[in-house]
């Protein structure tokens, strides 16, 4: 059974149709990439899945349950995590604190217990810390642990955002342009991590990406969008050689 299904989802902003009637299904354990020129509606789809936007039409299913209208803060506890195009970390907190905020959806201690910082809260905190340390080790960012995000280089921040998403222990991970702003080596490294996350942690990944080399390296299937519609869907080579896709990217007379 597919882990995520989008059924004819559409999004209008005023009169502008950013996404019109897009349907796709993502299988468990695969890396599913969405490509397309700027303004094709890629990030809009992400924003709909993470419920920042409510689709104007259509339905979204995650793990057999309808998530079209659930409140945005419940998405994380359902098991969907995401990163952002331009990095939305908590800039005035340490790396460790950022990762611990990723654990928020797993915390179940009550308000009064927190005010008194009871033993139960303390033990839960230690458990969260252990989980966060696992992620720190996985990504190899130990030496930045107590540093403020605002003082970290861009490439490291990108990795931290990935780590924060992993702290949610997601089953579905949405990566919005993981390579943007990274140099060639960092992009390569990002590719390896995406592979590791899929293989070692068994996380399903939907990725929006411009770097075709990275897309080719990690994706099982690729969906090409233009002007809010699906142009092609298939393996990365199939999509890259699709005449419609080539035309959308390079231009030329419409078919």
């Amino acid at each position: 059974m597919s882990i995520f299904v989008a059924d004819e989802i559409a999004m209008n902003f005023g009169g502008i149709r950013a996404v019109e009637g897009v349907s796709f299904a993502v299988e468990p354990g695969e890396v599913f990439s969405i490509i397309g020129p700027n303004g094709a509606g890629k990030t809009t789809i992400f924003n709909m899945i993470s419920r920042i936007y409510t689709p104007s039409a259509g339905r979204m299913m995650f793990d057999g349950a309808d998530i079209t209208n659930v409140p945005p803060h419940t998405i994380a506890s359902l098991g969907i995590a995401r990163t952002f195009q331009n990095i939305e970390l908590f800039a005035n907190a340490s790396l460790l604190q950022n990762l611990l905020i990723g654990r928020h959806c797993h915390s179940k201690v009550g308000l009064l217990a927190q005010l008194g910082f009871t033993a139960a809260v303390r033990d839960a905190e230690i458990a969260h810390r252990e989980k966060a340390e696992e992620v720190i080790e996985f990504l190899g960012v130990q030496r930045y642990r107590d540093q403020m995000i605002a003082n970290l280089p861009y490439g490291v921040r990108k990795v931290v955002e990935l780590g924060r998403a992993l702290c949610i222990e997601p089953r579905l991970l949405l990566l919005d342009e993981p390579s943007s702003g990274l140099n060639v080596e960092e992009t390569e490294e990002m590719g390896h991590w995406i592979g590791d996350i899929r293989r070692d942690l068994g996380v399903t990944i939907i990725m929006v990406e411009h770097d075709m080399k990275l897309v080719h390296m990690v994706s099982d299937r690729v969906m090409a969008l233009a002007s809010g519609r699906i142009l092609a869907l298939g393996t990365s080579s199939e999509v890259q050689n699709d005449p419609e896709v080539i035309r959308a990217y390079i231009g030329g007379a419409p078919a």
Partner: peptide, 22 residues
């Protein structure tokens, strides 16, 4: 405790705080 971190998260980025389940 988690509440304090949630507060800091809201201060720094509401949109991603929300995506973290806050």
């Amino acid at each position: 405790a988690p509440l304090g971190r949630a507060m800091v998260a809201i201060r720094d980025s509401e949109i991603s705080a929300q995506s973290m389940g806050i």
